[in-house]
Amino acid sequence: MPEASLLDFSVFNPRRLDEALSLLAEEENVVPLAGGTDLMVTLETGNLSPCRFLNLMGIAEFQEPFSWCDGKLRMSPLCSYRDTRIDKDVATRYPLLVRAAREVGVLAIQSRGTWAGNIVNASPAADGVPVLMVYDAEVELRSTSGTRTVPLCDFYRGYKEMDRASDELVTGIILPPPPEDRIEYFRKVAPRRLQAITKVLLTGYLLRSDDRIEDCRIVLGSVAPFTLRARETESILRGSVLDSETIKAARAALQGEISPIDDIRSTAMYRRNVAERLLDEFLLSASPESH
């Protein structure tokens, strides 16, 4: 029996994007609804304040999950984890998307959950956001007054705080092509193998020429108020020789950047230790000796 009283909720069912944007601009208290894998839970547990949902599922412009433009991938706000898993092109060009998608819940969640929903749900434990950040994703936001894009790694400002105005809708996620020959890493640490909320996640890539690190991305989940791009750790690594000294320095830098907490799912101590060990595992796997 759901906890919530549905009497407090209603739904707009727009068919076109402009309709949706006008509703967002003109109506109070409107909450966009995509696959519902987060919102329905919040609703059922009685933790959602009364609102009007803006059902995005019927919007004509959003029906194609992907499009390609100038070598960039554009994901529709309705693009689900399942869509990503079954698209061969996406899997070849952005393998981390597929690895992350596989570990978001299970098949029946992946068929409904969307990448855009994961972005705006803004959970520090988000499983989709980290790999998007690794690929330098940009968030396209649209309102009746115009369109703008924000780099995803600048999108969060605090716990559940985002660079999104109440009349703006995420209308696309844009991914540039990642560099060739990078070495990727993804590891989600959760209380069990699948269908579990992340305790610590580390993902990234590293681009090496001989033993020197040309470029890298390091993104972590569940160790800060929002998905964290570890820029300082990256800057220690960038340009350095990938050796044990560098790894040591990177591990120290990471400790300075993360701020994990104790909660019912894990402890700060554990998260801190494991985050560092994952970084170590990643860097060792990317070392010249491993290849």
Binding site: N13, L33, G36, M40, M57, I109, R112
Partner: peptide, 19 residues
């Protein structure tokens, strides 16, 4: 509560009527 919707597994407890 797993059911198939349009041929794909979904959880009926998370699927709202409007969809």
């Amino acid at each position: 509560c797993t059911v198939l919707m349009n041929g794909v597994p979904v959880l009926a407890c998370l699927t709202p009527a409007c969809q």
